[in-house]
Design a protein around this nucleic acid. Structure first.
Lengths: 332, 332
DNA sequence: GACATCACGGTAATCGTTTACATCCCCGGC
DNA sequence: GCCGGGGATGTAAACGATTACCGTGATGTC
């Protein structure tokens, strides 16, 4: 069917060994021979069979990634950055989604391992029920947890320093004059939700007034709506600053406040977390904690690369400090 | 290193051939032997090497996809749907991005072919300069163009019926009382831009008043802003309906109109195209033409599946009719 | 001139499966 | 009792590269 290295070798008048050497790097081959091989390959329109190469060399030049979903812009951007980083190193990216189901996630990981990816990047969809599969994978190939991580740590991880991010949001709100705060976030079912909540509780003392209103639901727009309605029940006690666990919640909150004629940022200031693309399109544009996605992806791939380079490195845990992006939903 | 089928066969007391047959389907193996093989595999924690299987069987059970970018929510959703569809069939998904660069796109396609994907799905980033690479790929494996397509057709394609979509938007606007229309879209550098523009021109006669204002730029928010400013220059000639080439443009237009105190939908009605997630979060929520992404993905995979099934089918071109979603930016 | 060294190139083993083909056995029909 | 057929199994040849190992000739050194 397709032309093999054997035919290239024949046409160039050398052995397959020499042809192989010439085609991959060309070290230890006389320039004249190298040229003849390359020309023969070109003339025959030779297309190397990466599968065969992978079998023999025991490396597929590919990395697998499993994320909860791609339609979430946050993960999409992350995947894009990882893809670019991988492509730069000549590696392919095998993408899977877990749909927030640990069983599916385990199956996807297994499938990726069967396909012999050189390394794995995973966003564990559950801080406990993802453990078995991810640790098993870590036994077989370099594996790094991205963004979320397993409870209790264990294995490499690259993510953002959520506590620091929330802290900067709280500092900003207090600095801008907010005397009372509330937190609207998600139940701590994953490590980010947990860390953000911890961050809020840790930063609360900075605010002299009240900070005791903590509403926990999930990371959805609807929860933002509901939480805002709850805060609006007693108009007088409406906090002057609302720290949200992510941008989606914050957009929900903003919307509900607008519907009820509450002035943002005049009466209430709102902050989000992530800096999804719509954050700056909101009305008013949302002040938020930006996730340094490019950096996260680059760091994740770098972590894997050093592990692939043969170093039996100890596990790394990298927390990158995020940056506060101030927009119209808070006063400067 | 890892356990091979040979060891499984030994433990089960059969030949590797029988072990292989038992592990894949189990047809032509006595139930007793089948059981013993499966048990041995379980006990040894055998993990099949998909690379070796792929080499011998000449099929990798994987499909490649190349899209311009994944951070675009439209493509992200598409990729997600394709991933789900592929996973359902036990196939892996190799993801690449072209970053709207035909050269990069060609390189990615070649890399995927080297990896011997069974089939390819591509969103050609340029209607002409993508041609060579995509046609070359089509020679080697079943290939389907998704969403966008090459100029002049050729090869299989699955996408949305843009003309019909724009037509339904125009009909809706006219039905809601708009007497003058304008179109804000992208220069026809890709097939969708072209089809939507054609759609507008085709539908224009439905509107008794003027429809001659056609502003062409690119598919960006900024272009939406600029185009709206241009329309606002002469306030009296502001059209009563603005048909936008996609949602991003429409959001830009909405925003600029809001800044200038124009009542939407009272004075002007606006429609988008795509139905990206933020469309319903806009203020007012955007009436738009929804792309049936799940259907597109399913249809694309189905197209490939029939081609993989051995059928030397002629090329298929499938245009799915989109659905108009009416929201607050137009009057019902 | 002898010998160690070195760069290059060829032969063949190898990676872990699938599968073509041969073999064997059992059964039923005549 | 013989033969044909079919199902289960084993043997071994692929699949298409990489690479361990060895041979060869050139070169350098003494």
């Amino acid at each position: 069917m397709s032309v093999t290295i054997k035919e290239v070798a024949e046409r160039a008048g050398v052995s397959v060994a020499t042809a192989s050497r010439a085609l991959s790097g060309g070290r230890g081959v006389r320039p004249a021979n190298r040229e003849r091989v390359l020309r023969a390959a070109r003339e025959l329109e030779y297309e190397p069979n990466a599968v065969a190469a992978a079998l023999r060399s025991r490396t597929t030049n590919s990395v697998g990634i499993v994320v909860p979903r791609i339609s979430n812009p946050f993960f999409a951007t992350l995947v894009e950055a990882v893809e670019r980083e991988a492509a730069r190193g000549g590696r392919g990216l095998l993408l899977s989604t877990s749909r927030y189901d640990p069983e599916v996630e385990a199956g996807q990981l297994k499938s990726l391992l069967d396909r012999r990816v050189d390394a794995l990047i995973a966003v564990p969809c559950h801080s406990e029920r993802s453990r078995a599969a991810i640790e098993a994978a870590g036994q077989r190939v370099p594996t790094v947890q991205l963004d979320l991580c397993l409870d209790g740590g264990g294995g490499s991880w690259v993510g953002v320093d959520s506590e620091a991010g929330i802290l900067s949001a709280v500092e900003h709100l207090v600095g801008a004059g907010a005397r009372t705060l509330a937190y609207v976030g998600s139940e701590p079912t994953d490590s980010s939700a947990q860390a953000r909540l911890d961050g809020y509780r840790g930063a609360a003392p900075l605010c002299p007034g009240g900070t005791d209103r903590v509403l926990l639901g999930d990371f959805s727009l609807e929860w933002g709506h509901r939480a805002a309605r709850r805060l609006l029940e007693n108009r007088r006690e409406l906090p002057e600053g609302i720290v949200c666990g992510n941008d989606t919640i914050a957009l929900g909150v903003l919307r509900e406040l607008a519907r009820n004629g509450v002035d943002v940022p005049g009466r209430v200031m709102v902050t989000g977390f992530d800096d999804i693309p719509f954050a700056e399109l909101a009305e008013p544009p949302l002040t938020t904690v930006r996730q340094p996605l490019e950096q996260l992806a680059a760091e994740a791939v770098r972590t894997l690369a050093t592990r692939l380079g043969g170093g039996e490195e100890p596990h790394r845990r990298v927390a990158i400090a995020p940056e506060l992006v101030v927009r119209g939903s808070t006063r400067a």
